[in-house]
Deep mutational scan, measured.
Amino acid sequence: KKRQCKVLFEYIPQNEDELELKVGDIIDINEEVEEGWWSGTLNNKLGLFPSNFVKELEVTD
């Protein structure tokens, strides 16, 4: 099962390897990279994003 999260706050990337987040976006979570940062895929782009800007969705079948 893939983990997903929903964006709660807009985020403007500070580095090229970060994702731009818009409220309501759904991100496929890949892994936790470091404290406070997750790796995920949004709009076919893989990048990092701050985990405190999102809420993980309940996994359903």
Rank of each mutant, 00 (worst) to 15 (best):
V33Y: 07
G24S: 03
K55C: 11
I26M: 07
E35I: 05
V59L: 13
V7D: 02
K1V: 07
N30S: 11
F53T: 09
L57H: 10
G24W: 02
K2T: 06
V7P: 00
K45T: 05
C5A: 15
L48G: 03
G36Q: 05
F53C: 14
N15K: 12
K45H: 12
S51D: 07
V23S: 06
E35R: 11
T41I: 09
F53A: 13
E58L: 12
G36E: 14
N52S: 13
K1M: 10
V59H: 13
L48R: 15
I12P: 10
Q4A: 14
I26T: 05
V23L: 07
F9I: 15
N44E: 03
L48I: 13
N15D: 12
L42G: 05
F53P: 04
I26W: 05
L48D: 01
P13E: 02
W37P: 04
D25R: 05
G24R: 02
G47S: 00
I29A: 01
Q14Y: 05
N15E: 08
K6V: 15
V54A: 04
Q4R: 15
K1S: 09
E56P: 09
N43T: 01
E18R: 01
V23W: 08
F49S: 02
N43E: 07
E31D: 13
V54C: 14
I29H: 05
Q4N: 11
D17R: 14
Q14N: 07
D17H: 07
G24D: 09
W38Y: 14
L46F: 14
N52E: 14
K45R: 12
E58V: 14
I26Y: 02
P13M: 01
N44G: 12
Y11E: 02
E16C: 05
F9G: 08
N30M: 11
Y11T: 05
V59F: 15
K55E: 14
G40L: 00
T60V: 06
L57N: 02
L57C: 12
Y11A: 04
Y11H: 08
K55L: 08
T41C: 04
L48W: 10
I12L: 14
D61L: 08
K22I: 08
K45Q: 14
P50A: 00
N15Y: 04
G24M: 09
G40W: 03
Q14F: 01
C5Y: 11
K45N: 10
L19D: 02
D28K: 08
T60M: 09
K55W: 06
N44F: 04
E35V: 11
E56W: 02
L48F: 10
G47V: 09
P50G: 02
N15R: 15
P13V: 00
T60F: 10
E31L: 07
I12N: 15
V33E: 10
E18F: 01
G47Y: 06
E34W: 07
K55V: 11
L48T: 13
Q14L: 06
V7C: 08
T60Q: 14
L42Q: 06
E18T: 01
E58P: 13
T41E: 12
K45P: 00
F9W: 11
C5I: 03
I27H: 03
P50R: 12
S39T: 12
L42M: 05
E31R: 14
D25L: 01
I12W: 08
E58M: 13
I12G: 07
L46H: 13
G36I: 03
T60C: 10
L19W: 00
E16V: 10
L42I: 09
L21M: 07
Q14I: 07
W37M: 09
E31H: 03
N30E: 15
E34T: 13
W37A: 01
E31V: 07
D25F: 02
L19N: 03
D28V: 08
V54K: 02
V23K: 14
E58F: 10
E20A: 13
E34L: 03
G47N: 02
W37G: 02
V59R: 11
P13F: 06
S39W: 12
R3W: 06
D61Q: 13
P13T: 01
F53N: 11
E34C: 13
I29N: 06
E16P: 10
I26G: 00
D28T: 10
P13A: 04
G47R: 02
R3A: 03
E10Y: 05
K1D: 15
L19H: 02
N43Y: 04
K1W: 02
G24A: 01
N52Y: 07
V33C: 01
E35L: 05
G40I: 00
T41V: 14
I27V: 13
L8E: 12
I29Y: 01
I27K: 00
G36V: 03
E32T: 11
V54E: 00
N30V: 14
I29E: 01
S51Q: 08
G40M: 00
N30C: 09
I29S: 02
K55I: 12
F9R: 15
N15A: 14
G47Q: 02
L57G: 01
K22Q: 06
V7Y: 01
G40Q: 00
S51A: 14
R3P: 04
V54P: 01
I27G: 00
V23H: 03
P50Q: 08
K55M: 13
G36M: 10
E20F: 14
D17P: 04
F53R: 13
T60D: 15
L19M: 07
I26L: 09
W37F: 10
E18K: 06
K6S: 12
K55N: 10
E10D: 15
G24K: 02
K6D: 03
E35N: 11
K45E: 05
P50S: 05
W38R: 04
I29R: 03
L21F: 01
S39N: 09
L19E: 03
G36P: 00
N52I: 10
Q14P: 06
K55G: 11
L42H: 09
L57F: 11
G40E: 01
L48C: 11
K1A: 08
E58W: 14
C5R: 04
E56A: 07
F49R: 00
N15G: 10
F49A: 02
S39C: 13
F49M: 01
T41D: 12
Q4V: 14
E32K: 10
E10N: 12
E58C: 12
G40V: 08
G36L: 08
I12T: 14
